[in-house]
């Protein structure tokens, strides 16, 4: 699906969006109130919808943290509070704990939605430029750029080697799978090492430093 670069927040300056995300996350954490979290969550969703972000991408930033959030909600519900609500076997769910858990879940959704709002409406190169403008050290910005550029390539190489090993029976049984995974990991690291050297040589050949 093609997304218009002018629609919604796509046209907004990346520096402003980055600052807004930082402020939103800070407020969400420093002033833990479910109404604030709810407001931030709705604002982020409205921002994404106004930017015509595909629904599946929006859903990803909602569903991805759910698996990690549910145990937290459960843990807070049984670990905090004094007013019993429900008794499940030996565990008691407390009213105050459940409220805390729900509030934490709202905070998670609000924060990840704002992260999604930034990432889904801003090209990564613009995020890097904004970081540079905010005086983040060059070595950090350059490294982040390299990571983003090459992580998918390395993943494809890893995946191809793993499929190949699987076809040869290299993943049969957990012992062999651990061994194969270790060997493939070493190969991927060596390839990354060699590729880094070639990149530097190419940069120097073009007059870079």
């Amino acid at each position: 699906m093609a997304i218009s670069r002018r629609s919604g927040l796509h046209g907004m300056d990346a520096r402003l969006k980055l600052a807004l995300v930082i402020v939103a996350v800070l407020f969400n954490v420093v002033l833990p109130d479910y109404r604030l979290s709810l407001g931030l969550l709705l604002t982020a969703w409205i921002g994404m919808a106004a930017s015509r972000t595909p629904f599946r991408f929006m859903a990803w930033f909602v569903l991805a943290p759910v698996w990690a959030t549910l145990p937290v909600v459960f843990g807070l519900a049984v670990g905090l509070g004094q007013t019993p609500l429900i008794k499940i076997g030996h565990l008691t769910v407390y009213h105050e704990g459940l409220a805390q858990g729900g509030q934490a879940a709202l905070r998670v959704l609000a924060d990840t939605s704002w992260a999604g709002l930034l990432f889904l409406t801003t090209p990564f190169t613009e995020i890097l430029a904004a970081l540079r403008w905010f005086r983040v050290p060059d070595v950090v910005v350059d490294t982040l750029g390299f990571m983003y550029r090459y992580v998918f390539l390395l993943w494809e190489e890893f995946h191809a080697m793993r499929v190949s090993a699987s076809a040869r029976g290299g993943l049969l049984g957990w012992r062999r799978e651990w061994h194969t995974t270790g060997v493939i990991t070493a190969q991927v690291f060596l390839r990354a090492y060699d590729r880094a050297q070639r990149i530097q040589q190419a940069v120097q050949a073009r007059g870079g430093v």
Binding site: D142, M147, L153, L154, W174, W178, T181, F189, A196, Q197
Partner: peptide
Amino acid sequence: IKEQPERKPLLGMAGAFIFLVSLIPIP
């Protein structure tokens, strides 16, 4: 980077490698 400027891209590549390792499935 100061000591080994020729290895600057290695940092990014190593960062990508760490990211990748954290995605590797372990039985």
